[in-house]
Design a protein around this nucleic acid. Structure first.
Length: 701
DNA sequence: CGGCCTCGAGTTCC
DNA sequence: CTCGAGGCCG
């Protein structure tokens, strides 16, 4: 339902609609038309209560378009004609949110919700607030995509997806196509800056209609409304987005400049008054009982709504209380998501499959009769390990309960209730006696949870190693599919073979062109520059991940020093004890490992540490904790620089912490630091100690 | 010696 | 994100 396109609906007579076209000032007329079109779009899309018929609306719209075509200088970015007029973008641009978009803690029951309220009371009591007169706001938690809308001086400027909460993608071009989204604030004195937060979704009727159209056109259909909305919002061409109807509910205000509000409830009223779509059933509630009742009410209504919801969001309304409650990690203490119980389904367990991991461990997974649960079809589900499998007591051939909660990984929960009574159940599944990939007899080491394929040349293991190598070395474009292809072609058996691939050969493979083949080879080439620590991780040494790899690199400096080291020396590395030291030593002594290392060394990968040795650098031996959002550095960048300076970053504050680096909306860690008397740095303070300057005393951000 | 914490690994999703 | 195992602190 693109604005300006044909609109379904009745033919109400023109109300106070179109004044006769005038031969007055075209600029004035254009402004008037824009106002009228936007007003009637608001009546239609937001209030669902049009005042005029579609024909009248279309006439207004056409007049505006004609006027703008005649006087291109009159086109303004906030003109309704610009909703679909945008040019395709070549790429989605990443944008940093002005304030991080937080996540929410969950409550799964009335008890957990009451416990949340109690925690808030306790917290506030410590601040000297004995009787917080909470006002709660309960809103449906729509299963869509969170977005941030920026208005400067009342004009819609930029809309972005939530992304990871700190950095999202600019999808302004597609958001403009949403009829309910105001392009301009209808007010005399708009705030200089306003960030509106909301959820973009596809309504169930629109989703059904879209899929029907696609099916008729012979196109693939979408799995569920959420995926459909996600795919649409990330389209590069807004014309495509305009053909797929998205809807919007706004649920709050983020950063503002020039707007003073006291509570979340006020913010919602303000949004409503300024034509933003706010769900009409959002309630303000005074007691826990009311909140629980409201959540249960939403749960009952879940199936009869026009959109999918997976819970209810409950917030403390008063901003003053919100401020005092603060944030823990990424979750504000003053809000919680009441999650509905996961949707479950019963289906047949067809069998258990076993997949070898990087080191030969066989991991069981359930092969299920395909079943629809919570909007997706489940065919496979992981079963962690043999103990988990035994604990669940599921048997191939029987019915099992599968569940999928929100965007959580599908799980097999248990046998279906009716199978437990059967006397003659099929036997419990057993780990295979031969590796399902290479047919080598399996072994089960004493005390291990896993049965293993002992064959080091097992294609399954090699595949795992190669895909893991590609990921660790950050080789763009080399994913599971390509690893499979190159292995099937016999081109690649060890990671070193990747560096011998030629773009000419790859380009001859179906699905490849010269450009994509060249890009892949370049990506592989670039990975030679990855630091020694990552190379150690990528080699596939059991027990050695990103952190231990980096620690080993920093401690031993060169691969030769590491290869020559006795277990006792390896044990001196942080995080490595006798057991790991012995295991690492033995794996490095293996001739195949030696051969791989020599091969990669010849290819030019880095086998020498460039950074400061362990125990040196301005932050040597120091432990830092990061909290909140820093003005310039991301968490990753800050971590990287601290490590480069010889320091360590951990997650929680203790007496052993040397510095807490606190940014915007720092939470409990900052409080704890103050309690323990740990020095607190802001970003400038961090930069100073990174340079080796003494911290200029405790600096609270 | 017991409990907490960190690390590694697989899986699955966008 | 979840789990198990090993390391390390109290």
């Amino acid at each position: 339902m693109a604005a300006g396109g044909a609109r379904a609906g009745g033919d109400a007579p023109a109300g106070g609609g179109a004044p006769a076209g005038g031969d007055g000032d075209p600029e004035q007329r254009a402004a008037e038309l824009r106002r009228l079109v936007e007003y009637h779009a608001y009546r239609y899309y937001v209030l669902d209560d049009p005042e005029i018929g579609d024909d009248v609306y279309d006439a207004l719209f056409d007049e505006l378009r004609a006027l703008e075509a005649e006087h291109p200088e009159l086109v303004t970015p906030d003109s309704p004609t610009q909703r679909v007029g945008g040019e395709p973008v070549s790429d989605l641009v990443k944008v940093r949110h002005l304030e991080p978009m937080l996540s929410l803690a969950n409550a799964r029951s009335a008890e957990e919700l009451r416990a949340w309220v109690q925690r808030m009371r306790n917290h506030l009591a410590r601040e000297g607030i004995e009787d917080p007169r909470f006002q709660f706001v309960a809103e449906p938690k729509i299963d869509g995509l969170a977005i941030s809308l920026l208005y400067r001086d009342g004009i819609f400027q930029r809309g972005a997806t939530r992304g990871n909460g700190e950095v999202g993608e600019d999808v302004t071009h597609n958001l403009r196509t949403i009829g309910a989204l105001p392009l301009r604030l209808e007010t005399e004195r708009p705030p200089a800056l306003l960030e509106v937060r909301g959820e973009v979704y596809m309504s169930l009727p629109d989703f059904a209609a879209l899929n029907e159209r696609r099916a008729q056109a012979g196109l693939s259909t979408f799995m569920n409304p959420r995926n459909s909305a996600a795919g649409t919002i990330r389209q590069l061409d807004p014309k495509l987005a305009a053909e797929r109807p998205l809807s919007l509910w706004c649920y709050g205000i983020g950063v503002t400049d020039g707007l003073t509000l006291e509570s979340h409830w006020e913010a919602l009223q303000w949004l409503r008054e300024h034509r933003f779509p706010v769900h009409p059933d959002v309630r303000r509630l005074a007691t826990e009982d009311d909140v629980v009742a409201q959540c249960q009410d939403w749960e009952r209504r879940r199936g009869s709504l026009e959109f999918e919801i997976d819970g209810v969001v409950v917030k403390v309304s008063q901003f003053e209380l919100q401020r005092r409650l603060g944030v823990v990690g990424r979750d504000p203490r003053w809000a919680i998501a009441w999650k509905f119980p996961p949707t479950t389904a019963v289906t047949r367990l067809n069998g258990i499959g076993w997949n070898p991991g990087k080191f030969g461990d066989l991991h069981p997974y359930a092969m299920l009769e395909p079943v629809h649960v919570g909007g997706v079809t489940i065919k496979l589900a992981t079963l962690h390990n043999e103990e988990d499998l035994a604990r669940k007591d599921i048997r191939p051939g029987e019915d099992v309960i599968v569940l999928r909660a929100g965007d959580v990984i599908p799980q097999v929960l248990s046998p279906a209730p009716h199978v437990a009574e059967h006397a003659d159940r099929p036997p419990p599944p057993r780990p295979p006696e031969r590796c399902p990939v290479c047919d080598t007899p399996t072994v089960k080491p004493e005390g291990s949870v896993f049965t293993r394929c002992p064959n080091r040349d097992c294609a399954g293991r090699r595949w795992q190693l190669l895909t893991s190598f590609a990921g660790v070395m950050d080789i763009d474009g080399l994913g599971e599919k390509l690893v499979t292809l190159f292995m099937d072609l016999g081109w690649v058996t060890t990671p070193a073979d990747l560096y011998r691939l030629s773009a000419e050969l790859i380009a001859q493979q179906p699905g490849f062109g010269e450009v994509s083949a060249r890009k892949l080879v370049e990506a592989i080439d670039r990975s030679r520059q990855q630091p020694f620590g990552l190379v150690l991780f990528a080699l596939g040494i059991e027990e050695v991940g990103q952190v231990t790899g980096r620690n080993l690199a920093q401690r031993f400096r060169t691969i030769d020093a590491l290869l020559a080291a006795e277990p006792e020396a390896i044990e001196q590395t942080p995080g490595v004890g006798p057991k790991m030291a012995r295991s690492i030593h033995d794996q490095l002594a293996d001739p195949r490992m030696r051969a791989l290392i020599e091969d990669l060394r010849g290819i030019g990968l880095r086998f020498q540490e460039e950074g400061p040795p362990l125990g040196e650098g301005p932050l040597a031996g120091r432990t830092l904790v990061l909290t909140g959002t820093l003005p310039h550095l991301t968490r990753e960048q800050a971590t990287e620089r601290i490590i480069a300076a010889g320091g360590r970053v951990t997650g929680s504050v203790s007496r052993r912490t040397d510095y807490v680096v606190a940014g915007e909306s720092a939470g409990s860690k900052l409080a704890r630091a103050e309690q323990l008397g740990v020095s607190v740095l802001d970003e400038d303070g961090l930069l100073a100690v990174l340079e080796g300057e003494p911290p200029h005393g405790p600096r609270v951000a």
